[in-house]
């Protein structure tokens, strides 16, 4: 549940990096996603239409992002343009600090989030794995907070699981792990740590077999959630036998049988 919407799938798949629209189409279907991200860019002969038409055909909701924005002002204008073009007030807010790391600029993100929330947007904010910053984003009205596991497209997984777990315990709004996922076990871990969902793109679109990886991600998110809810066993330093310790053959004589 994000904002006023109930989702069956907890996986949001991004569309960036797919080798072709046909592969993207099949990967989206295999992922079971109900919402997918798009970027807003100036029209040109080769960009027109296609992704918009594909999402309509698949009946997948569109979640525009503000990727590439460096300031709150740029992100707000991009969100307003997305609302006008795509007729949705949902926005994945992403304000980055530099081109090389694509790490979020926390101050600009909070600034933009506050204005967008006041303007009626449903804001899903991409952020650092910083519990205090996540709290700020929640307080200014974000519908969901989305910490990174590692830099965008890095595939490094969840570098600081402790922060993700801590952040989840401090926030009341939905929290989605966004960025850094490399393979299925990363997505499962995100869910095991208590995340409400996972947002990923590159891990699927740039995999050797995007459709196969999309399927793996769907199952990983489902598995991770089931495991989280089922409650994992505590970790121990020593073994804890799962077979009975009594009734072993030869235990009466306390001697090994002779052969």
């Amino acid at each position: 549940m994000i904002g006023d919407r109930q989702f069956n799938s907890r996986l949001i798949m991004g569309t960036g990096g797919a080798p072709s629209l046909e592969i993207l189409r099949n990967a989206l279907i295999a992922s079971g996603t109900e919402m997918t991200t798009v970027a807003m860019r100036r029209v040109s002969a080769d960009t027109h239409g296609s992704i918009f038409d594909l999402l309509r055909e698949l009946k997948i909701d569109v979640l525009p992002n503000t990727a590439g924005c460096y300031t709150a002002g740029e992100a707000i204008l991009t969100a307003q343009l997305a609302r006008e073009a795509l007729e949705t007030s949902w926005i994945k807010l992403e304000v980055i600090s530099n081109e090389e790391t694509l790490l979020p600029d926390g101050l600009e993100t909070v600034r933009a989030a506050e204005k967008l929330a006041l303007d009626g947007f449903t804001v899903l904010a991409y952020t650092n794995d910083d519990p205090a910053l996540g709290k700020r984003l929640q307080d200014v009205g974000c519908a969901a907070v989305m910490p990174l596991g590692a830099p965008i497209g890095s595939g490094l997984g969840i570098r600081n699981p402790h922060n993700i777990e801590l952040m989840r315990s401090l926030l009341t709004v939905p929290m989605l792990l966004d960025a850094g996922i490399g393979t299925a076990s990363d997505a499962a871990l995100a869910m095991e740590l208590g995340c409400d969902g996972v947002l990923l793109a590159s891990a699927v679109t740039r995999a050797a077999d995007p459709v196969g990886m999309a399927h793996a991600m769907r199952l990983a998110v489902e598995s991770g959630l089931l495991a989280h809810n089922a409650g994992r066993i505590p970790k121990r330093w020593r073994a804890h036998a799962s077979s009975p310790q009594s009734g072993l053959i030869g235990t009466d004589a306390r001697e090994s049988p002779e052969f």
Partner: peptide, 10 residues
């Protein structure tokens, strides 16, 4: 004047 549309991304 800027005219924008949705493209694959993020």
């Amino acid at each position: 004047v800027d005219v924008l549309t949705a493209v694959q991304g993020g």
